[in-house]
């Protein structure tokens, strides 16, 4: 049985199409990422799957149960960490965790094995109110609360948004270990670099899925060479490159620009030569998920 099945889901809010014809399935023990910016529709989809919102059209099954007819059962079986921190700020770590365990008719002790490793990191602060925790600690507590009833499926809506790179890395390390316990995880993120940490991802933008595949296959499908370029004055280089007809795209990527061409590289070199760029450097680059995402976004924009 596929733990999550989504078929042709549509959802609009007034004139705004939040989700358009969304379909995908998630396999046993799979870590599946919804990758897209704010406003792409990720949270709407989570709310439909968590039975908090009705879709206008389409079906979805979580753990074999229909999200409309069997919503009560689903609510007992899923762990859901919403995008906004939604624990009780004036209860302590311990109290929040006990509260969630009680709601689900269980105890912290009963499933302690599952949360042990994460909980131990925040246990020294067990008596501190949740509202007084750092971002990284809040996130760990929220994950414990979502896991305390040993859910069959885990929904994590933007768990790493606004979190610094160190805490983000720690969080993903935790997810990799949770995955080994066989819980399928649906996680969303606006950080493209996190896509490679998932088994499969759906790239989502403006309520539509642009592509679903493994991160490796998405990158392999990029389909054209990418050149990394830089010069002393990178701002001027961007302008010069964008002004050249043979340049398809030119975007800043950290230290370098990523440039794709519909002409020979030698033409670009010949164009740049008389422009007097200091310390000009050109070398082949490997495209990443972000390159692919931007390419797909452009295709989507051209269609609409």
């Amino acid at each position: 049985m596929q733990p999550i099945i989504v078929e042709n889901i549509h959802k609009s809010f007034g004139d705004v199409k939040a989700l358009h014809d969304i379909s995908f399935t998630i396999g046993e023990g799979e870590l599946f990422g919804l990758i897209g910016p704010d406003g792409a529709g990720k949270s709407t989809l989570f709310r439909i799957l968590a039975t908090l919102l009705l879709a206008d059209e389409g079906n979805a099954k979580v753990n074999g149960r229909d999200v409309v007819k069997e919503y009560r059962t689903i609510r007992r079986e899923v762990g859901y960490m919403p995008g906004r921190f939604s624990l009780y700020q004036d209860l302590t770590i311990e109290e929040n965790l006990n509260f969630f365990a009680t709601i689900f008719n269980t105890t912290v002790e009963e499933n302690y094995e599952l949360i042990k490793e994460i909980y131990e990191q925040i246990a020294p602060f067990a008596k501190r109110p949740a509202g007084k925790l750092s971002g990284g600690m809040k996130q760990k507590l929220a994950l414990c609360c979502a896991l305390v009833h040993k859910p069959k499926v885990l929904f994590l809506d933007e768990p790493t948004t606004g979190v610094d790179p160190v805490s983000r890395k720690e969080f993903w390390d935790m997810l990799q270990r949770l995955k080994t316990k066989g819980i399928p995880i649906l996680v969303s993120t606006p950080y493209m670099d996190e896509a490679v940490l998932c088994d499969r991802v759906a790239l989502i933008q403006k309520g539509a899925i642009m592509q679903i595949n493994t991160p490796a296959n998405i990158v392999a499908g990029f389909g054209m060479p990418v050149w990394a370029m830089k010069a002393k004055n990178i701002y001027r280089l961007i302008h010069d490159l964008r002004a050249f007809k043979g340049v398809l795209s030119c975007y800043a990527f950290g230290e370098y620009l990523h440039v794709t061409l519909d002409t020979e590289l030698d033409d670009v070199k010949a164009y740049l030569a008389p422009l007097g760029h200091e310390a000009l450097e050109i070398k082949p680059a490997a495209p990443g998920i972000e390159d692919a995402f931007m390419q797909l976004m452009q295709e989507q924009n051209e269609l609409t």
Binding site: P37, T161, P190, Q205, Y251, Q298
Partner: peptide
């Protein structure tokens, strides 16, 4: 630029450079 899509994020940096 938190949560902003990758193209807009770069357009934002174009404004910063400018």
């Amino acid at each position: 630029t938190g949560g902003v899509d990758p193209i807009t994020r770069r357009q934002f940096w174009d404004l910063i450079y400018e």
